[in-house]
């Protein structure tokens, strides 16, 4: 009987531990996450833009590593950088989080338009641009 109670206690404690962990789990840090899909920016854009529905099925929620040409970088007042690949309207918009934006500021400041970039992020879908968030630069 005593063993049973102890067992039950252990179960309860570990279950609440897991749920507390799940509850407080921060949004993902993608630096160490393996991408689901590795693709070129041009291919990604063509593929998505030709059929949004199938693009959504294929890419939304997935971690994408995309390589393309740097079109520009926009910084918000709060210090969040957004990197545009290929185009600012029909390209890929990659949002970095604020802490990460600060840590790569010098790299971003020195990068030139047209230079090759690889970025890993989570695909959220397409407005005019394909949008990715939680993005990190891939060395």
């Amino acid at each position: 009987m005593k063993k049973l109670i102890i067992l039950a206690l252990i179960l309860v404690i570990s279950a609440s531990g897991v749920s507390l962990y799940m509850y407080f789990k921060p949004s993902r840090d993608l630096a160490k996450v393996k991408p689901d899909i590795v693709i070129s920016a041009k291919r990604f854009i063509e593929d998505y833009a030709s059929d949004e529905t199938s693009g959504n099925e294929k890419y939304v929620g997935k971690i994408i590593e995309v390589s393309g040409s740097l079109y520009g970088i926009q910084n918000t007042v709060k210090g969040i950088s957004t990197i545009f690949l290929e185009d600012d309207f029909f390209g890929i918009s990659c949002s970095l989080d604020s802490v990460y934006s600060v840590s790569v500021k010098s790299i971003l400041d020195s990068s030139k338009e047209g230079s090759p970039v690889s970025i890993k992020g989570r695909c959220n879908g397409i407005l005019t641009n394909i949008q990715m968030s939680s993005c990190v630069l891939v060395e």
Partner: peptide, 9 residues
């Protein structure tokens, strides 16, 4: 989907 939360859940 581009709304980001502090907690992923």
């Amino acid at each position: 989907r581009s709304f980001e939360f502090k907690k992923s859940l």
